[in-house]
Design a protein around this nucleic acid. Structure first.
Lengths: 198, 198
DNA sequence: CCTACCGATCGGTAGG
DNA sequence: CCTACCGATCGGTAGG
């Protein structure tokens, strides 16, 4: 609840890295302590328990994403520009916080239910931000109740990138965003009659 | 190595379900035994160890996908038709084997390296099948070395569906495939000049 | 009596 | 196919 101290930030970053590589249940507090150069009791001086670590990593990450969506909303750009910016900035954040993003994606399910709910609520807010921009850009989508499915296909493209995209590779985050935006905005007009039984 | 007995198939299916929900390290062999209505020693009569379970689930699933790609290749359809069919049939398989697909996606990393390699090789074969079809459809992509990135964005759309798409929901697997194909094939022409630094 | 820790070990449970 | 266990390691905490 308090603003995390610098030492706490280091611990959260180390935990995110280990959880991302080994999964939450596959990571021991002893490993984490060793990675931080602390004894286990010293680690427990900074962190109440293992689940709290996971919760704080997920909360901080999704709150950053939700804040980004609110910020873009406030700018009131044209729908296409807003969508482009959302994609570009999300991929930028994912590139900066790839461990945290992977933990949110794969390990959220290990949190106790009540703790998950607040995070899932923020996730829904993020999804709505994209879905609203899509619906504004292509009202026909919303009429066919396809705004959410298409939004999730878009999230598939960007959320899946951690499995293959290397930030130090030949394709930059910005080029990747161009590619996603090209595919999405080029493909949207074709969706007029899709989604219906053939 | 031997063809799995019906009992073994049940165990693999139960294991896939538990691994998908709780993760591989988060699932105990006692839990699995209980889910199968077996004692733990009885379970170990059918399965040598925990990692072997994970390996067989991943291998069987990726082999099915690789076989599907080879089958489509042999049909020698036109590039667009081939791509459409690949997307449609992959989403169909994912719908039938959602647990196995999630396990392959999230838990493959827990296998010992040598065991991972054979599976990753088959994954690369699958990716190449899609990338080749994409390159045949849009030669400009291959020239800009964008066939692989675009292929991975496509896999993002379809591989991410397990996080949100419910087979018993309002959107059928077939409609979902239509949506993905519409977005992909509609968006491809727009990618001529994407992926370059702006 | 506070903080920031230490070496050692707690009660339980993991895979086998 | 059971009960009864093992060496080790789990998350978390004792006294100093």
């Amino acid at each position: 609840m308090n603003p995390p101290s610098p030492r706490e930030q280091d611990i959260l970053a180390a935990a995110a890295s280990l959880f991302a590589q080994q999964g939450y249940p596959g990571t021991s507090m002893s490993q984490l302590a060793a990675a931080c150069g602390l004894s286990k009791p010293a680690l427990y001086h900074y962190v109440p328990d293992k689940a709290e670590l996971l919760a704080r990593i997920c909360e901080a990450h999704v709150e950053k994403l939700a804040a980004l969506v609110r910020e873009e909303r406030a700018l009131k750009l044209a729908p296409e520009a807003q969508l482009r910016e959302l994609v570009r900035r999300f991929l930028q954040v994912y590139g900066e916080a790839r461990h945290e993003h992977r933990v949110l994606t794969e390990d959220l399910k290990f949190l106790p239910e009540p703790r998950q709910q607040r995070i899932r609520e923020l996730e829904r807010e993020v999804v709505s931000g994209f879905a609203d921009a899509l619906a504004a850009l292509q009202p026909a989508l919303a009429q066919q109740q396809l705004a959410k499915p298409v939004t999730m296909l878009l999230f598939g493209m960007i959320n899946w990138t951690y499995t293959w995209h290397r930030p130090d590779g030949p394709l930059s985050d910005a080029q990747l965003a161009e590619l996603v935006n090209g595919l999405l905005l080029g493909g949207l007009p074709a969706l007029g009659q899709a989604g219906r039984a053939s």
